[in-house]
């Protein structure tokens, strides 16, 4: 403790600044920690058909879920689909972000609108549009048939493929926007220096631009992955049984069959899976990031 001119004790500055963290802490407590504690508590209650939950406590919902081949399959499918959506969004989003960052064209603003367009339409409406496009008699299958490329319709609806396509479409902006900010912040003189030292365009991109854009790639990838594995409406409407994800299964447990303890356990397991996947990704990318200036 230090003292003011009047002699009153004053906390060190870094302690006095702690109050600024209070709003964030309260927000975290109310909207994150307390709900999670509530979910975790519910997941440990016994099941009952005579009450919301039984009287006792149990870990059986966890052991049942983690030894159930069906649930493990759904978890695996959810993570796999999330990873695939992330990869596709990165592959499709990077060139767009790069072009937007480098372009001085007057049409750039139009491209911005195109990038953001998936977010400008309501979720259910957008998903219904995908149903029209991907169904057996939809635009894709009718076009392929009219071109004579297929005799029988491709099964795009009620499969993981349909969900991956629709999620990649909607989450593309979440890759493009962080990447764009990152690419725009890279000093163009760095690339120019590489070029002036004899590096080809490809080598300059691979050795200079791409590594420097890793923070944007990392942020975009985490955003898309987390959003993909927690998406509900798109897999519920387009996934069917074969494309069912954990969020759909959790809703079925909680909302359709009113199994709050078992549903809460599934939700907790999925949160843990997401946390592990994101942590692994961060660890894997951390080494590359450390080399950055």
């Amino acid at each position: 403790m230090t003292e003011t001119r009047t002699g009153a004790p004053v906390a060190p500055q870094h302690l006095r600044m702690l109050w600024m963290l209070a709003p964030a802490f309260v927000l975290l407590l109310l909207f994150f920690i307390l709900p999670y504690v509530s979910i975790a508590t519910m997941s440990l209650r016994e099941a009952s058909t005579r009450a919301v939950h039984g009287e006792g406590w149990t870990v059986s919902h966890y052991t049942t879920a983690l030894t159930d081949a069906y649930i493990l399959t759904v978890i695996g499918r959810t993570v796999l689909m999330g990873g695939l959506v992330t990869l596709l969004a990165l592959l499709l989003g990077y060139p767009v972000a790069y072009h937007l960052a480098m372009s001085r064209s007057r049409w750039t603003s139009l491209l911005y609108v195109c990038v953001l367009s998936p977010l400008l339409v309501g979720l259910v409406v957008r998903t219904f549009a995908w149903m029209i496009i991907l169904s057996n008699n939809g635009v894709v299958n009718q076009t392929l048939r009219s071109l004579g490329l297929i005799d029988f319709p491709l099964q795009l609806m009620n499969t993981p493929a349909g969900v991956v396509i629709a999620l990649t479409h909607v989450f593309l902006p979440f890759v493009v926007l962080p990447l764009l900010g990152n690419l725009q912040a890279i000093n163009p003189e760095v690339s120019m220096a590489a070029r002036s030292l004899g590096a080809s365009r490809l080598r300059t991109f691979l050795k200079v631009t791409l590594p420097l854009s890793l923070p944007g790639l990392q942020a975009g990838a985490i955003l898309v992955f987390v959003l993909s594995i927690s998406a509900y409406v798109t897999p519920a409407l387009l996934g069917g049984v074969r494309g069912r994800t954990m969020s759909v299964l959790i809703v079925q447990y909680l909302v359709d069959t009113f199994r709050w303890p078992a549903g809460a356990a599934l939700a907790t397991i999925m949160a843990a899976v997401a946390l592990i996947a994101v942590t692994l990704f961060l660890l894997l990318t951390a080494r590359a990031m450390r080399r950055l200036p």
Binding site: A47, T49, Y70, V241, R244, L249, Q252, D256, T257, F258, R259, A262
Partner: peptide
Amino acid sequence: PEAAAIADRWN
């Protein structure tokens, strides 16, 4: 009492 098992079986 059967509802949960029926839903699981359907899945």
